[in-house]
Design a binder for these strands. Structure first.
Lengths: 147, 147
DNA sequence: GGTATTGTATACTATATTAGTCATAATAGT
DNA sequence: ACTATTATGACTAATATAGTATACAATACC
Protein backbone atom coordinates (compact mmCIF):
# COMPACT_ATOMS: atom_id res chain seq x y z
CA UNK A 1 0.00 0.00 0.00
CA UNK A 2 2.78 2.39 -0.84
CA UNK A 3 2.56 5.71 -2.58
CA UNK A 4 5.21 5.90 -5.27
CA UNK A 5 7.60 8.81 -5.47
CA UNK A 6 5.40 10.24 -8.19
CA UNK A 7 2.62 10.92 -5.75
CA UNK A 8 4.98 12.02 -3.01
CA UNK A 9 7.15 14.31 -5.07
CA UNK A 10 4.26 15.56 -7.16
CA UNK A 11 2.37 16.69 -4.09
CA UNK A 12 5.43 18.40 -2.74
CA UNK A 13 5.95 20.08 -6.08
CA UNK A 14 2.43 21.45 -6.08
CA UNK A 15 2.76 22.70 -2.54
CA UNK A 16 6.03 24.40 -3.42
CA UNK A 17 4.37 25.92 -6.45
CA UNK A 18 1.43 27.16 -4.42
CA UNK A 19 3.79 28.72 -1.89
CA UNK A 20 5.52 30.66 -4.68
CA UNK A 21 2.49 31.54 -6.72
CA UNK A 22 3.12 35.28 -6.58
CA UNK A 23 6.29 34.95 -8.66
CA UNK A 24 4.56 33.04 -11.45
CA UNK A 25 5.60 31.41 -13.60
CA UNK A 26 7.83 29.43 -11.29
CA UNK A 27 10.84 27.68 -12.78
CA UNK A 28 10.86 23.90 -12.57
CA UNK A 29 14.55 24.24 -11.91
CA UNK A 30 13.88 26.25 -8.77
CA UNK A 31 11.29 23.80 -7.52
CA UNK A 32 13.70 20.97 -8.24
CA UNK A 33 16.38 22.67 -6.19
CA UNK A 34 14.16 23.58 -3.25
CA UNK A 35 12.53 20.16 -3.11
CA UNK A 36 15.69 18.28 -3.96
CA UNK A 37 14.16 16.40 -6.83
CA UNK A 38 16.11 16.02 -10.06
CA UNK A 39 14.87 18.34 -12.78
CA UNK A 40 14.57 15.49 -15.26
CA UNK A 41 12.32 13.54 -12.97
CA UNK A 42 10.28 16.59 -12.05
CA UNK A 43 9.54 17.09 -15.72
CA UNK A 44 7.94 13.67 -15.78
CA UNK A 45 5.83 14.49 -12.76
CA UNK A 46 4.55 17.76 -14.09
CA UNK A 47 3.37 16.33 -17.40
CA UNK A 48 0.27 14.52 -16.12
CA UNK A 49 -0.59 17.51 -13.94
CA UNK A 50 -0.58 19.76 -16.99
CA UNK A 51 -2.65 17.27 -18.95
CA UNK A 52 -5.04 17.09 -16.01
CA UNK A 53 -5.56 20.84 -15.93
CA UNK A 54 -3.98 21.46 -12.55
CA UNK A 55 -0.80 23.09 -13.76
CA UNK A 56 -0.28 25.52 -16.62
CA UNK A 57 3.10 25.74 -18.32
CA UNK A 58 4.77 28.52 -20.22
CA UNK A 59 7.55 27.48 -22.51
CA UNK A 60 10.57 29.44 -23.49
CA UNK A 61 12.47 32.21 -21.82
CA UNK A 62 10.75 33.71 -18.78
CA UNK A 63 8.61 30.63 -18.78
CA UNK A 64 7.83 28.21 -16.03
CA UNK A 65 4.84 26.58 -14.41
CA UNK A 66 1.91 27.99 -12.49
CA UNK A 67 -1.29 26.68 -10.96
CA UNK A 68 -4.04 26.41 -13.55
CA UNK A 69 -6.73 27.07 -10.93
CA UNK A 70 -6.99 28.45 -7.41
CA UNK A 71 -5.32 26.25 -4.81
CA UNK A 72 -8.58 25.87 -2.88
CA UNK A 73 -10.03 24.13 -5.93
CA UNK A 74 -7.25 21.58 -6.16
CA UNK A 75 -8.12 18.48 -4.20
CA UNK A 76 -5.47 15.97 -3.29
CA UNK A 77 -7.68 13.20 -4.59
CA UNK A 78 -7.40 14.76 -8.04
CA UNK A 79 -3.64 15.07 -7.79
CA UNK A 80 -3.12 11.48 -6.69
CA UNK A 81 -5.49 10.24 -9.36
CA UNK A 82 -3.42 11.98 -12.02
CA UNK A 83 -0.07 10.86 -10.67
CA UNK A 84 -0.80 7.37 -9.43
CA UNK A 85 -3.95 6.39 -11.21
CA UNK A 86 -6.88 5.07 -9.26
CA UNK A 87 -6.44 4.84 -5.54
CA UNK A 88 -8.38 1.57 -5.42
CA UNK A 89 -6.36 -1.05 -3.53
CA UNK A 90 -7.44 -3.76 -5.96
CA UNK A 91 -8.59 -3.56 -9.56
CA UNK A 92 -11.96 -5.21 -9.02
CA UNK A 93 -13.15 -2.27 -6.93
CA UNK A 94 -13.10 -0.08 -10.02
CA UNK A 95 -14.09 -2.75 -12.48
CA UNK A 96 -16.00 -5.77 -11.19
CA UNK A 97 -15.53 -7.47 -14.54
CA UNK A 98 -11.86 -8.20 -13.89
CA UNK A 99 -12.82 -10.99 -11.51
CA UNK A 100 -15.65 -13.48 -11.72
CA UNK A 101 -16.02 -13.48 -7.94
CA UNK A 102 -16.78 -9.79 -7.70
CA UNK A 103 -20.49 -10.12 -7.03
CA UNK A 104 -20.16 -12.50 -4.13
CA UNK A 105 -16.78 -11.46 -2.79
CA UNK A 106 -16.86 -9.87 0.65
CA UNK A 107 -13.16 -9.12 0.69
CA UNK A 108 -13.84 -6.90 -2.29
CA UNK A 109 -16.42 -5.04 -0.19
CA UNK A 110 -13.73 -4.32 2.38
CA UNK A 111 -11.29 -3.07 -0.22
CA UNK A 112 -14.04 -0.78 -1.41
CA UNK A 113 -14.55 0.57 2.09
CA UNK A 114 -10.83 1.05 2.33
CA UNK A 115 -10.89 3.04 -0.86
CA UNK A 116 -13.75 5.20 0.41
CA UNK A 117 -11.88 5.94 3.61
CA UNK A 118 -8.78 6.96 1.68
CA UNK A 119 -10.78 9.07 -0.68
CA UNK A 120 -12.45 10.75 2.26
CA UNK A 121 -9.12 12.11 3.40
CA UNK A 122 -7.76 13.03 -0.01
CA UNK A 123 -10.94 14.60 -1.37
CA UNK A 124 -11.36 16.79 1.68
CA UNK A 125 -7.83 18.16 1.53
CA UNK A 126 -7.05 20.94 -0.90
CA UNK A 127 -3.77 22.47 -1.85
CA UNK A 128 -4.91 25.57 -0.01
CA UNK A 129 -5.24 23.47 3.15
CA UNK A 130 -1.65 22.36 2.74
CA UNK A 131 -0.48 25.91 2.18
CA UNK A 132 -2.24 27.01 5.36
CA UNK A 133 -0.80 24.17 7.36
CA UNK A 134 2.66 24.97 6.12
CA UNK A 135 2.27 28.61 7.06
CA UNK A 136 0.98 27.61 10.48
CA UNK A 137 3.98 25.39 10.99
CA UNK A 138 6.56 27.85 9.80
CA UNK A 139 5.33 31.35 10.52
CA UNK A 140 8.68 32.92 9.61
CA UNK A 141 8.77 34.20 6.06
CA UNK A 142 11.48 32.48 4.10
CA UNK A 143 11.90 29.71 6.61
CA UNK A 144 10.48 27.18 4.21
CA UNK A 145 13.29 27.74 1.75
CA UNK A 146 15.99 25.84 3.49
CA UNK A 147 13.93 22.77 4.22
CA UNK B 1 -1.63 2.43 -3.57
CA UNK B 2 -2.18 -1.17 -4.54
CA UNK B 3 -2.54 -4.16 -2.34
CA UNK B 4 -0.35 -6.97 -3.63
CA UNK B 5 -1.75 -10.42 -4.27
CA UNK B 6 -0.30 -11.48 -0.94
CA UNK B 7 -2.76 -9.29 0.92
CA UNK B 8 -5.62 -10.12 -1.40
CA UNK B 9 -5.12 -13.87 -1.53
CA UNK B 10 -4.12 -14.10 2.09
CA UNK B 11 -7.33 -12.46 3.23
CA UNK B 12 -9.37 -14.73 1.01
CA UNK B 13 -7.51 -17.71 2.37
CA UNK B 14 -8.31 -16.74 5.94
CA UNK B 15 -11.95 -16.19 5.12
CA UNK B 16 -12.12 -19.56 3.42
CA UNK B 17 -10.45 -21.10 6.44
CA UNK B 18 -12.88 -19.42 8.82
CA UNK B 19 -15.82 -20.67 6.76
CA UNK B 20 -14.56 -24.24 7.05
CA UNK B 21 -13.42 -24.16 10.63
CA UNK B 22 -15.63 -27.04 11.74
CA UNK B 23 -13.69 -29.50 9.61
CA UNK B 24 -10.35 -28.49 11.05
CA UNK B 25 -7.64 -28.89 10.15
CA UNK B 26 -8.37 -27.66 6.64
CA UNK B 27 -6.12 -28.79 3.84
CA UNK B 28 -4.15 -26.08 2.08
CA UNK B 29 -4.83 -28.03 -1.09
CA UNK B 30 -8.57 -27.61 -0.63
CA UNK B 31 -8.28 -23.90 0.05
CA UNK B 32 -6.07 -23.57 -3.00
CA UNK B 33 -8.66 -25.30 -5.13
CA UNK B 34 -11.66 -23.39 -3.81
CA UNK B 35 -9.89 -20.04 -4.02
CA UNK B 36 -8.10 -20.85 -7.24
CA UNK B 37 -4.70 -19.99 -5.89
CA UNK B 38 -1.77 -22.26 -6.67
CA UNK B 39 -0.83 -24.44 -3.75
CA UNK B 40 2.79 -23.41 -3.99
CA UNK B 41 1.94 -19.77 -3.72
CA UNK B 42 -0.53 -20.35 -0.93
CA UNK B 43 2.24 -21.96 1.07
CA UNK B 44 4.13 -18.68 0.83
CA UNK B 45 1.14 -16.77 2.11
CA UNK B 46 0.44 -18.99 5.05
CA UNK B 47 3.96 -18.87 6.43
CA UNK B 48 3.86 -15.30 7.80
CA UNK B 49 0.37 -15.92 9.16
CA UNK B 50 1.63 -18.90 11.13
CA UNK B 51 4.63 -16.93 12.36
CA UNK B 52 2.26 -14.14 13.34
CA UNK B 53 0.10 -16.43 15.43
CA UNK B 54 -3.04 -16.17 13.33
CA UNK B 55 -2.89 -19.63 11.81
CA UNK B 56 -1.90 -22.92 13.40
CA UNK B 57 -0.61 -25.74 11.25
CA UNK B 58 -0.69 -29.48 11.78
CA UNK B 59 1.85 -31.45 9.81
CA UNK B 60 1.59 -34.91 8.45
CA UNK B 61 -1.28 -37.06 7.35
CA UNK B 62 -4.66 -35.70 8.42
CA UNK B 63 -2.93 -32.41 8.94
CA UNK B 64 -3.75 -29.00 7.60
CA UNK B 65 -4.23 -25.48 8.87
CA UNK B 66 -6.66 -23.95 11.32
CA UNK B 67 -7.23 -20.60 12.94
CA UNK B 68 -4.97 -20.07 15.92
CA UNK B 69 -7.54 -17.88 17.64
CA UNK B 70 -11.23 -17.06 17.38
CA UNK B 71 -12.14 -15.26 14.18
CA UNK B 72 -13.56 -12.33 16.13
CA UNK B 73 -10.10 -11.71 17.52
CA UNK B 74 -8.44 -11.57 14.10
CA UNK B 75 -8.38 -8.02 12.84
CA UNK B 76 -7.70 -7.29 9.20
CA UNK B 77 -5.12 -4.72 10.21
CA UNK B 78 -3.11 -7.54 11.75
CA UNK B 79 -3.46 -9.71 8.67
CA UNK B 80 -2.37 -6.97 6.28
CA UNK B 81 0.51 -6.02 8.54
CA UNK B 82 1.80 -9.59 8.42
CA UNK B 83 1.33 -10.02 4.70
CA UNK B 84 2.21 -6.62 3.34
CA UNK B 85 4.19 -4.97 6.10
CA UNK B 86 3.24 -1.55 7.34
CA UNK B 87 0.26 0.06 5.71
CA UNK B 88 1.91 3.49 5.85
CA UNK B 89 1.78 5.09 2.38
CA UNK B 90 5.29 6.50 2.81
CA UNK B 91 8.17 5.36 4.99
CA UNK B 92 8.57 8.63 6.88
CA UNK B 93 5.20 8.14 8.56
CA UNK B 94 6.59 5.18 10.47
CA UNK B 95 10.09 6.48 10.87
CA UNK B 96 10.63 10.25 10.69
CA UNK B 97 14.38 9.70 10.55
CA UNK B 98 14.29 8.47 6.96
CA UNK B 99 13.82 12.04 5.75
CA UNK B 100 15.31 15.25 7.03
CA UNK B 101 12.13 17.14 6.16
CA UNK B 102 9.90 15.09 8.41
CA UNK B 103 9.50 17.67 11.15
CA UNK B 104 8.38 20.46 8.88
CA UNK B 105 6.69 18.49 6.12
CA UNK B 106 2.97 18.97 5.84
CA UNK B 107 2.57 16.41 3.08
CA UNK B 108 3.84 13.88 5.59
CA UNK B 109 1.03 14.94 7.93
CA UNK B 110 -1.48 14.13 5.22
CA UNK B 111 0.04 10.73 4.54
CA UNK B 112 -0.22 10.09 8.24
CA UNK B 113 -3.92 11.00 8.20
CA UNK B 114 -4.32 8.71 5.24
CA UNK B 115 -2.74 5.89 7.17
CA UNK B 116 -5.03 6.53 10.15
CA UNK B 117 -8.08 6.41 7.91
CA UNK B 118 -6.99 3.13 6.37
CA UNK B 119 -6.18 1.67 9.74
CA UNK B 120 -9.60 2.74 10.97
CA UNK B 121 -11.24 0.46 8.43
CA UNK B 122 -8.87 -2.47 8.79
CA UNK B 123 -8.64 -2.44 12.57
CA UNK B 124 -12.40 -2.37 12.95
CA UNK B 125 -12.97 -5.33 10.65
CA UNK B 126 -12.47 -8.82 12.01
CA UNK B 127 -12.48 -12.13 10.26
CA UNK B 128 -15.75 -12.84 12.03
CA UNK B 129 -17.22 -9.74 10.37
CA UNK B 130 -16.23 -11.12 6.99
CA UNK B 131 -17.71 -14.49 7.78
CA UNK B 132 -20.99 -12.87 8.78
CA UNK B 133 -21.06 -10.75 5.65
CA UNK B 134 -20.43 -13.79 3.53
CA UNK B 135 -23.24 -15.69 5.18
CA UNK B 136 -25.56 -12.73 4.75
CA UNK B 137 -24.72 -12.58 1.10
CA UNK B 138 -25.08 -16.27 0.45
CA UNK B 139 -27.63 -17.69 2.85
CA UNK B 140 -27.75 -21.06 1.08
CA UNK B 141 -25.50 -23.62 2.70
CA UNK B 142 -22.87 -24.79 0.29
CA UNK B 143 -23.43 -21.93 -2.09
CA UNK B 144 -20.03 -20.51 -1.29
CA UNK B 145 -18.30 -23.57 -2.57
CA UNK B 146 -18.67 -22.99 -6.24
CA UNK B 147 -17.58 -19.40 -6.22
C1' DG C 1 9.10 -49.26 11.24
C1' DG C 2 7.54 -48.00 6.73
C1' DT C 3 4.99 -45.12 3.99
C1' DA C 4 1.87 -41.84 2.48
C1' DT C 5 0.50 -37.36 3.61
C1' DT C 6 1.08 -32.98 4.70
C1' DG C 7 3.41 -28.56 5.78
C1' DT C 8 8.44 -25.94 5.64
C1' DA C 9 12.15 -23.82 3.57
C1' DT C 10 15.06 -22.42 0.05
C1' DA C 11 16.34 -21.36 -4.43
C1' DC C 12 15.24 -19.93 -8.76
C1' DT C 13 12.93 -17.24 -12.61
C1' DA C 14 10.14 -14.28 -15.61
C1' DT C 15 7.82 -10.12 -15.70
C1' DA C 16 6.47 -5.63 -14.28
C1' DT C 17 7.22 -1.46 -11.90
C1' DT C 18 9.95 2.18 -10.13
C1' DA C 19 12.90 5.76 -10.37
C1' DG C 20 15.30 7.72 -12.64
C1' DT C 21 19.01 9.67 -16.80
C1' DC C 22 19.81 11.49 -21.21
C1' DA C 23 19.21 13.48 -25.61
C1' DT C 24 16.43 16.15 -28.38
C1' DA C 25 12.50 18.90 -29.87
C1' DA C 26 9.44 22.72 -29.36
C1' DT C 27 8.54 27.32 -27.94
C1' DA C 28 8.95 32.00 -26.32
C1' DG C 29 11.41 36.14 -25.25
C1' DT C 30 15.39 39.28 -26.42
C1' DA D 1 19.50 34.26 -34.63
C1' DC D 2 20.34 33.20 -29.88
C1' DT D 3 19.19 31.77 -25.48
C1' DA D 4 16.29 30.13 -21.87
C1' DT D 5 12.97 27.20 -20.78
C1' DT D 6 9.51 23.36 -20.85
C1' DA D 7 8.04 18.80 -23.50
C1' DT D 8 8.73 14.33 -24.98
C1' DG D 9 10.44 9.93 -25.74
C1' DA D 10 14.07 6.52 -25.50
C1' DC D 11 16.71 4.16 -22.59
C1' DT D 12 18.42 1.83 -18.19
C1' DA D 13 19.48 -0.10 -13.52
C1' DA D 14 17.50 -1.64 -9.52
C1' DT D 15 13.85 -3.56 -7.06
C1' DA D 16 9.50 -5.85 -6.23
C1' DT D 17 6.01 -9.10 -7.64
C1' DA D 18 4.18 -13.39 -8.55
C1' DG D 19 4.94 -17.10 -8.94
C1' DT D 20 7.41 -22.37 -9.82
C1' DA D 21 10.34 -26.11 -8.48
C1' DT D 22 12.71 -28.93 -5.49
C1' DA D 23 14.21 -30.98 -1.57
C1' DC D 24 13.21 -31.56 3.27
C1' DA D 25 10.87 -32.41 7.81
C1' DA D 26 7.16 -33.87 10.66
C1' DT D 27 3.31 -36.70 11.64
C1' DA D 28 -0.43 -40.20 11.49
C1' DC D 29 -1.77 -44.49 10.22
C1' DC D 30 -1.07 -49.26 8.94
Amino acid sequence: MKLSTKGQYGTRMLLDLALHEEEAPVLLKDIAQRQQISLGYLEHLVTPLIAGGIVRSTRGAKGGVSLAKPSEQIKLSEVIQLLEGSIAPVACVNDPAVCSRSESCVTRDIWDELKQAMDGVLASTTLQNLVQRQKDKQPLEGAMYYI
